[in-house]
Design a protein around this nucleic acid. Structure first.
Lengths: 134, 134
DNA sequence: AAATATACATAATTTTCTTATGTATAAAAT
DNA sequence: ATTTTATACATAAGAAAATTATGTATATTT
């Protein structure tokens, strides 16, 4: 059951009714999405977009929610850069686009992951009082 | 001694000669700069812009380099949001702008830091093979 | 005297999101 | 049965936050 107050500018469409639960608690720091995608594909060989969103939600217990508006452009970009290959599959009457790492994608994934690790430990040093260097 | 190749589009100015060492290894993920600034001010009471860039460089052993183009707009924004107070000081013949946390800035810093911690541990889970949930 | 370091600033552009749409099929709920 | 939710793709407008390239000016070091 959805409730909508008048001040709300959102329109109800057939499939997407008023969504009052769209709270912007997206703690996904810019720049990390590509690395997340690459990492998942390194672990799972091939995945399709929707599957990635669900996997991330599951792995992070709802902490991180990949939005479609961020995901699909990111997949397209990684593909355009030659890091991913795409393979379209028809499941029932619906299409899926399976993505997998290319050879250069696999190499780049290693780079991105070590960069990410470095960033995480640097940030940890910086923000964790326990490890404060002062 | 600076060397410049012809293809380089950069112009030499009086004070900033050709900088061939501007390698884009800025591992500062978007969204973390404000938190870094707030954290430093929580530890150091008051700091000026240039001091912040040097402190970050020092604390991270050169890992993170805050650029001026990112720093100053960030400071101005935090000030506009009421999280920082500014106090201009004259040192010799040069001015410095000392920033310090306001009361609401102190509160917000706590929020930002715990959000950051949450993000870091979530990302750690996601990218560190040791902690992989699969 | 020239180069580097200190100290501020801003403008143009790029990257990467958020938010809001749109289309369409399949499954679940009322 | 019909509505809602879930699955599955996509894109466009706008915002946020960087990068890169400037600019000014003083102080210190080479």
């Amino acid at each position: 059951m959805y409730i909508c107050c008048e001040s709300q500018t959102q329109k109800a469409t057939k499939n997407k009714p008023f969504n009052i639960d769209t709270m912007g608690n997206q703690k996904l720091y810019k720049g990390s999405l590509q690395t997340i995608i690459l990492k998942l594909l390194a672990q799972n060989d091939k995945m399709y977009g929707y599957e990635i969103t669900q996997k991330v939600k599951e792995l992070t217990k709802g902490e991180l929610k990949i939005t479609e508006g961020a995901l699909y452009p990111a997949l397209h970009k990684l593909e355009a850069e030659g890091l991913l290959d795409v393979e379209v599959a028809k499941v029932g009457n619906r299409l899926r686009k399976y993505y997998k790492l290319t050879e250069s994608g696999t190499k780049e994934t290693a780079n991105r992951l070590s960069e990410m690790q470095e960033f995480l430990s640097t940030m940890q040093q910086l923000v964790n009082p326990k490890f404060s260097l002062e």
